[in-house]
């Protein structure tokens, strides 16, 4: 790898990191504004114009709070918990193709940090490691509510990972590749995977809600039963890390859904516009981010519309609802592909 390529990758990595953090930061603001809109309120409007500085104020508050580690807690694991949650949340953005290729001074720069040929599986692996952050944090707090919250989180994430994996298998059957870049490139024009895998998309979306612990699947932190769930004992920036990791996960899940099912940075008539290739690439990235923002809005919309599940309902939905449906989806997809290859 040449020096300029390495350098461009490193710069791009930091840009992605910054974008992820800023989007996650302003998701907290958007969430409160959306909630306010849904409930016919005004929402935060004191800090700055339209309350735009509210996330900064929140962050400052988190930093200034007293840091408390319970006496009976396991100190190492107590600190390790939020760190793992934050790290795995940030690691996922590496394989997402944020745009096409830019050509600057003769050098082609790909707007994707790493084009792994197992991109989907990498995201899946990071999600499955992310469970440890919640589990270890909840256990190390030495608090029964935290423990219950983390046990709930772990069983919920394991259950929904299965259905999610099977939705991905059906998608891989249609695309024939595990690389996210190739999946996006196949979806040019209107060939979005949502039209080929509508059921798979639905399963993936619901499982993404469950994996990010968002309402109606927020039982791990169910306030009415468990105080705060796994982060009951946390304060200061360690609590901030947990809350922030949730928003980063939401952003990344929205990006993954947009990549897998909504054509990523493709949009219809992309190739017919009489524009420079670089401009088209940037336009594609802008469209990609618009798709992501819409999906983030969808996450919030559902959170403020639907009530929380009961825990047995959640388990029934996962094991008796989604897993059989996703297996059926795989079978139907396989049969259709087989006959398509046989006859056409």
């Amino acid at each position: 790898m040449e020096t300029w390529e390495l350098l461009s990758k490193i710069i791009f990595l930091f840009v992605i990191l910054a974008i992820t953090l800023v989007v996650a930061m302003y998701s907290t603001y958007a969430e409160r504004k959306v909630a306010a809109f849904m409930q016919d309120r005004l929402g935060p409007n004191r800090a700055g114009p339209y309350g735009l500085l509210q996330p900064l104020a929140d962050g400052l508050k988190m930093f200034m709070k007293e840091e408390i580690i319970p006496t009976m807690a396991n100190r190492t694991l107590f600190i390790l918990g939020p760190s793992i949650a934050m790290t795995t949340a940030l690691l996922t953005g590496v394989v997402i193709p944020w745009g096409g290729n830019l050509t600057i001074a003769g050098h082609v720069i790909s707007l994707q940090v790493a084009d792994l040929n197992i991109g989907i599986l990498y995201i899946f692996a990071m999600v499955s490691i992310g469970v440890y952050g919640i589990m270890l944090g909840g256990w190390a707090s030495n608090n029964k509510y935290a423990l219950l919250g983390s046990v709930r989180a772990a069983s919920q994430m394991i259950s929904y990972e299965l259905a999610m994996g099977m939705a991905i298998i059906a998608l891989v059957l249609t695309t024939g590749t595990l690389s996210l870049k190739e999946i996006v490139d196949q979806q040019q024009g209107w060939h979005w995977n949502i039209f080929y895998q509508p059921l798979g998309f639905l399963i993936f979306l619901v499982c993404a809600f469950a994996e990010t612990n968002r309402a109606p699947f927020d039982l791990p932190e169910c306030e009415t039963e468990l105080i705060g769930g796994y982060h009951t004992e946390y304060s200061s920036m360690k609590l901030g890390f947990y809350l922030f990791a949730e928003y980063i996960n939401m952003f990344i899940s929205a990006a993954v859904i947009a990549t897998l099912y909504f054509g990523g940075y493709n949009f219809p008539f992309l190739n017919r516009l009489p524009l420079d290739a670089n401009v088209l690439t940037i336009l594609g990235s802008v469209v990609f981010f618009l798709k992501i923002f819409f999906l983030i809005f969808l996450f919030m919309w559902i959170r403020w519309t639907l009530p929380r599940f009961r825990y047995d309902q959640l388990m029934n939905l996962g094991w008796k609802g989604f897993i059989p449906i996703s297996i059926a989806n795989i079978m139907v997809t396989g049969v259709v592909i087989y006959f398509k290859e046989l006859f056409f």
Binding site: L116, F124, A125, S128, L136, A154
Partner: peptide, 26 residues
């Protein structure tokens, strides 16, 4: 062997060890 590495993480780290931890916590 990227595939093996990722599957190793998903299966062992992501599933089996979570179950271990789960039982120990319970």
């Amino acid at each position: 062997a990227q595939f093996l590495a990722v599957v190793h993480i998903i299966v062992y780290t992501g599933a089996i060890m979570v179950l271990f931890l789960f039982v120990i916590m319970l």
